[in-house]
Nucleic acid binder design. Structure first.
Lengths: 166, 166
DNA sequence: AGATAACCCTAACGATCGTTCGTAATGAGC
DNA sequence: GCTCATTACGAACGATCGTTAGGGTTATCT
């Protein structure tokens, strides 16, 4: 709170004309984060091939991190300091997000775009883990979409080099 | 410090017969983490193919996380609360670890085990990101090596299914 | 002009936190 | 048996933290 006030050029006490408590501010930031990540998934057209959806999901996730780095950092790292119902709510939103991503991989497998023996849970875990860590290294200035596409290429076609070209 | 004392069944003040400060304790834990991760890489035989080294590096990383979950969590998440030279030291260790992993991918590319156009920086970033996030979901009871191998399979052969068979 | 809401200040509160201090019990080595 | 290091205790310290209270200024609306 002291740091926050300082960076706003204001006294600590003055903050409470805008927020009701530190815990409330944390919750509001978390809600913002949850909404941003879900909105990124919502923006993906339904009729696209599953692999294309996965590519756009990666782009969307990294874009949220890049454009709202502070919110994303809080969303990813500070949820354990929420208390009570609000904590449960945010944890559920995280879980729902993970489920939506996993559904993309399942769809890709079922439609034959991805290998039929794909372990979609592990695939989603791998992809989401990499994406969740992005807040630690992502530089908002760089071309985030291109980076997401490189990740997509590695994940889908692999690193070995006998995969489909292009 | 209060929680730590409580979980040790001891008064807060008694802790200072064993450590000299909270900051020192943090540093010692970080050193333990850095040593564990580097030791995991040290244990990989030099003469193996690069891809096999990558597989073992993934195994080693996840095993450190699983077997020393508390130390790994601190190492991955709390380094920013170190101060001064010690912070610089640990940051350098993290950097060195990343460089060592990246060298494995470069070796794989140069020896032709991985695609010749592989972006080894991105490959290492993707792999390390996933590995670094593991402390949030890894369950020490499960078969960590098998999980690491599944990650390895996805990363190296991809999810699309036209890659080299198993 | 007067009322009202929005915003900020200063000062202080109670709680928590890391740490220190004086003291005491325990056990190993000379 | 005396010494001394180790470990623990309980109480207190100074600092920091989130929050509240009282008062003041400014701009908007009636």
């Amino acid at each position: 709170m002291g740091d926050l006030a300082k960076s706003l050029g204001v006294q600590k006490g003055s903050l409470y004309a805008h927020i009701s408590s530190k815990q409330d501010l944390l919750y509001e930031t978390m809600r913002e984060g949850a909404d941003a990540f879900h909105a990124a998934l919502d923006a993906i057209p339904d009729e696209l091939p599953a692999t294309e959806k996965i590519r756009l999901a990666l782009r969307g996730h990294l874009r949220v991190v890049a454009e709202q780095l502070d919110v994303a950092t809080v969303f990813v790292r500070e949820w354990r300091y929420l208390e009570g119902d609000r904590r449960a709510e945010i944890v559920a939103e995280r879980r729902r997000y993970e489920d939506r991503v996993r559904a993309l991989f399942r769809e890709g497998r079922e439609l034959g775009e991805l290998r039929t023996d794909l372990d979609d849970a592990t695939a989603a875990l791998l992809s989401l883990s990499a994406a969740n860590w992005a807040y630690t290294w992502l530089q908002p200035g760089r071309d985030t979409d291109a980076l997401a596409d490189r990740f997509y290429g590695l994940l889908v076609d692999g690193m070995r080099g006998y995969a489909t070209p292009g």
